[in-house]
Design a protein around this nucleic acid. Structure first.
Lengths: 196, 196
DNA sequence: GTACAAAACTAACACTTATTAGTTTTTTTG
DNA sequence: CAAAAAAACTAATAAGTGTTAGTTTTGTAC
């Protein structure tokens, strides 16, 4: 009946993927059925398969789109001559912005990657590990150059990454806070406290 | 065949719940079947129902055991005359210890509460909201009394809660870090940076 | 308007799910 | 050892899963 709308420049596959991200976030990947996704789009479940390969492919697309965005930004920032502290600040701000701009997708990449099948699961984990290691490298260098407090670099990275992840909760308080103040307060808490 | 072992003082229901928490953490609630849980215990799926009411009851037990532990600790700490900053530090340390002592259960409570059915879902969320609000109150009072930097109290609480949550990642680096150093470094990062 | 392609539909498949009923085995109690 | 209780088993149910095949409808181009 109702055709799947391809909004703007995006394909119909993009429309489906977007809606899938929203549902996967709200209910979890395993608890979202293809019939439910189809219902939400206004179409029969079987019709989705004219546009996508499988349910798992949807998850893969979401997870790797996000992972690649972070990887690319990391490479961009790491290649500059900025101080380690400002590299960290810049990456934290990117995390915050991604969270605000692509909430559903980032959430799904953070929470539902476990449901990826091989070899995607292994790929995803190794990409994430590389990202973490690069951050640890920045912190280590910052400590060596006396920019940062002498804390365990792993703990610092873990604390930073987890804190920005917490922006998930922010959606609940959205009304009471503007994004810029949020970003600045969080960076302030995490970075200024970090500077020696 | 093989009977379900009731270890120590715990009932057989406890044994099942513990194993369920481990599986729900590893694979997610929806992706863990009762057959899989039973297999892991060494028994047929139907046999589990001699000890438990339902799959959902397992999740409820896990989520509310953890939620209650945090609520009780909050009441204990809130009732003292300690400074706000040391109340916060004490609660952060409790979070860290819970994470290290009851990893699977805390993880499941943090990630799988969405799969709770009504009215448990609503109860769980309101209990969590109360907890957050109490923390916000402590931070607000701390700011008023000039103990803490003037940051948005919601953002501070969100940052703190998310950071301790990140201890999930710690399991991966367990070998390289001892628990005490971890706890102190994290508190140092989060609190010392917070003190005016 | 007719041909072609895109994308919807219906119907079905093979499988898995949580859970129940009924029965048999094992353990505990007297 | 016999009786009672606990806890395992087998078998089945009804519902839901992702996905495919085959068909019909819809939109587009000449």
């Amino acid at each position: 009946m109702a055709r799947i709308k391809a909004v703007g420049t995006g394909s119909k596959k993009d429309t489906i993927t977007k809606k899938a991200a929203a549902l996967f976030r709200k209910k979890g990947f395993a608890s979202t059925s293809m019939r439910e996704l189809a219902d939400n789009i206004g179409v029969e479940a079987a019709s989705l398969y004219n546009h996508i390969g499988s349910k798992n492919e949807l998850l893969q697309t979401i997870c790797f789109t996000i992972a690649n965005a972070f990887t690319i930004q990391l490479e961009k920032v790491a290649g500059t001559t900025a101080s380690n502290i400002s590299k960290l600040e810049s990456l934290i701000r990117f995390h915050i912005q991604m969270m605000l701009r692509s909430y559903d997708e980032v959430f799904v990449a953070n929470h539902e990657w476990k449901q990826l099948q091989e070899p995607f699961l292994t790929n995803f984990l190794s990409q994430r590990k590389n990202y973490e290691n690069a951050l640890v490298g920045i912190v280590q260098d910052g400590i060596k150059k006396n920019e940062l407090k002498k804390l365990d670099p792993y703990v610092v990275v873990l604390t930073l990454l987890s804190a920005v992840r917490g922006l998930e909760f922010w959606q609940r308080h959205k009304k009471n806070l503007d994004a810029t103040k949020l970003e600045n307060d969080m960076v302030n808490h995490l970075i200024k406290g970090l500077i020696k």
